[in-house]
Simulated scan of single mutants.
Amino acid sequence: MQIDLAGRTAIVTGSTGGIGLAIAKGLAGCGARVVVNGRRAPAVERAVAAITDAGGQAVGFVGDLGTADGCAALVAAHPACDILINNLGIFEPRDFFDTPDADWTRFFEVNVMSGVRLSRAYLPGMEKGDWGRVIFISSESALNIPVEMIHYGFSKTAQVAVARGLAERMAGTNVTVNSVLPGPTLSEGLADMLRPEQERTHKPLAEVAADFVMTHRPSSIIRRAATVEEVANMVVYLSSPQASATTGAAVRVDGGVLSTI
């Protein structure tokens, strides 16, 4: 299968590292012009350079898309796109009884409303052109709510609901909307969280990550953390012309964590 995205513009939110950067690289590798986003200029510049040095097309947008003003500024700078990857997200383990209202609001604004605002801005253009792809990067935590961060799980469930509703709103067009549900993935965020354990045990990071998976997600079939590239591969496929009959789906890249068919 040869995925050709030449002539398409893709926006990947929160794409200076981790899954987002892997997605941006994957889309650029298939010919798309990619808009890379982050809150800090040096990180955005490094991500753009990583893509262009590999022969891809990328431009940067510095802004906080967890705010309405940040989303509006992105749309003003880049009024149209063919592929929107709502990847921006935050997570933080915190007990339910220690999680104040402000944290619930912050997770909702960043994880949910960023995608809502950008989808509202870009979907009409996709519908008018009768082609487009919108993908929400959710999580297996949308279905397997983590007791250690219920506020995070709630936001990921909301993303799946929005994606399904938007897919139905785009019915009869060549615009698809899906969500992708990664399982534990060895991104920079997980690596940072596991760093103290790695330093304590002197084990390789991948081994510490595997131990973490088997402790917190023992139903995992692959029995390790996924790589960011493994998640990105699914996103690139769903962004392609070949995925034209897949819409309204919650596609799992969870390593079999969810014990359901």
Rank of each mutant, 00 (worst) to 15 (best):
G255H: 06
P42E: 13
L258F: 13
V35E: 09
F154M: 07
Q159T: 01
R169V: 04
E45S: 13
N178A: 07
L27I: 06
V36T: 08
V34C: 13
R169N: 14
G17H: 12
G26Y: 07
G29E: 02
V44F: 04
G125N: 04
A49P: 09
Y152V: 04
I11D: 06
G14M: 08
A41F: 02
A73L: 04
G165H: 05
P196G: 06
V160H: 00
I83A: 01
H78A: 00
G60E: 07
G56C: 13
S139W: 00
N233A: 11
Y237E: 08
M234H: 09
L258W: 12
V34T: 04
L258Q: 02
P124M: 04
G70T: 12
S259W: 03
T185I: 11
L190A: 02
V235E: 05
G129C: 10
M113Y: 03
G189F: 09
E229G: 14
V44A: 09
G66S: 08
E92Q: 15
E199D: 14
S259C: 11
P241T: 12
L205F: 10
I23K: 14
L27P: 07
A10E: 11
P218Y: 07
N87R: 07
S239D: 02
L258T: 13
D64C: 01
I83W: 03
D82N: 15
T246D: 03
V48D: 10
R133Q: 07
V48W: 10
F97P: 00
A171H: 08
P79H: 06
R224F: 02
G129P: 00
E197Q: 10
G183I: 10
V251D: 01
E127N: 01
A102H: 15
I85T: 10
D192N: 12
L186T: 06
F154K: 01
H151W: 09
R133N: 08
A163N: 09
P204T: 04
